[in-house]
Nucleic acid binder design. Structure first.
Lengths: 252, 252
DNA sequence: GAGTGGTCTAGACCACAAT
DNA sequence: TTGTGGTCTAGACCACTCG
């Protein structure tokens, strides 16, 4: 057994990483390793507590998180079981285009068509809760998968929030930039998905024929204090793209 | 103050309803009443514990649930705050067409076009993990909103799971039927959303012109033991329908 | 009856934010 | 320094499932 395996085999109570997170990771790893198989019962909360020499409530917190992401499910009076494999959840988690494509086994790339500072149209002004005359960055990008256009993306970001945003920073995820350089965090995002025929202006960028269908994904992300931080509208080629998500039945 | 108000004002420790659920409801009610306003801090966990004479962990469980549904958010070292209002979350919760329409302020109705028992096509057989020759119910319905077609819905359900399903039961939600008469529960569902041009056969049911766009929503629901229980494919008129959802940034 | 998850207690110490 | 949420303990009783 090598060192890499050891770190996930034993609990480090002195670590700055919370114990319940460590237990979460160990259970996930053991599922990945096939130690606990789909549909099978994992050890009881009391057994884990004994095994790791921690309180049952700590084990419970770890398991509750894994139930929350659909990795495990509980049955009262019976036990806790491993869920059957789940598909990627592009509508359940805030992922970047890059992560999304990689999860689908495609090679992502992108091309910046424009990077401007301007006063946005009324609609965007309202979405981003901007004052009259406030400026935004407008970033237009073609998003490719395996070198074929997948989506045309327009991102609006208030200049006030990121006065020094540079084009080359776009390589990183906006969420990373926010968390690293601005010391605040994204709290959530609201998405809308609709469909329509592709417009003539978008058609050539997406290399589509007339009367082709696009999925329009609109996303607004918020900071912890509920200020809108970005508004993105993407046109996905409907012949290449499909949204997935998983819905948990409200569990108590 | 009348009786109806009293029940949400005081905690009933003898009730069979868990205390943390009661606290959850009270906090929700107080937000609805405007006692705690958007962006404002609510009392601390220790204050609630003192106020309701319960342990802090119990209060914490209530608050954690409200954070989970986006009603509240926490900031370390500062406090817990009321989120700004959120939109309907048709992609986050397992809701029926009826609930979905009501939430959008529309009047739902529906019309059963067919209710048959048959051996399904291979694709459906695979989705529902059926053995060769196993039968399913196929229910075809037009779903109206304000008396105008909104969607064409095809539902496949294994006969084996519900040997006595009757057409008139379709008035109720399938989920209610399952939970009331069959003593088991839905655990989760997987959804796919894509878009395409409407087919000629569906076109007349949806009262659409040629070259109209539809959103195709496909949903597979699972029981707690991970057996698939229904497979639904709905064609929504893209000129009338839009999906919404809210994504929480993974919080620990 | 033995084992399970569901709920709850009454504390504790920590890191972080504000003053 | 005081107050907040974050984590953790070592118990307890309950309702449920299964043999």
């Amino acid at each position: 057994m090598n060192v890499t395996e050891v770190v996930i085999d034993v609990l480090n109570k002195a670590s700055h990483i919370p114990i319940y997170i460590q237990i979460e990771e160990m259970i996930k790893q053991q599922i990945a390793d096939g130690k606990y198989r789909q549909g099978e019962m994992i050890p009881s909360e009391r057994e884990f507590a004994e095994m790791y020499q921690v309180s049952r409530m700590t084990v419970r917190q770890a398991i509750t998180n894994l139930v929350g992401i659909g990795q495990l499910y509980r049955e009262k009076g019976k036990g806790t079981f491993v869920s059957t494999e789940k598909l990627e959840q592009s509508l359940n988690s805030l992922t970047s285009f890059t992560e999304d494509m990689l999860a689908r086994g495609l090679v992502p790339s992108s091309e910046v068509l424009s990077f401007d500072v301007l006063i946005p149209p009324k609609e965007i002004m309202k979405e981003l809760q901007l004052a009259e005359g406030e400026k935004v960055y407008l970033i237009t990008r073609i998003r490719n998968a395996d070198n074929i256009p997948m989506a045309l993306e327009r991102t609006y970001i208030p200049v006030e929030l990121f006065p020094n945003l540079k084009e080359q920073q776009l390589e990183q995820s906006l969420y990373q930039i926010i968390e690293q350089y601005y010391g605040t965090k994204i709290s959530h995002a609201d998405q809308h998905i609709e469909a329509r025929l592709v417009s003539n202006s978008d058609r050539k960028f997406l290399q589509l024929a007339e009367n082709s269908v696009v999925l329009v994904m609109q996303r607004k992300s918020y900071l912890l204090d509920q200020r809108p931080v970005e508004f993105v509208r993407s046109m996905y080629r409907a012949d290449r793209y499909k949204f997935h998500n998983r819905i948990e039945r409200r569990a108590l």
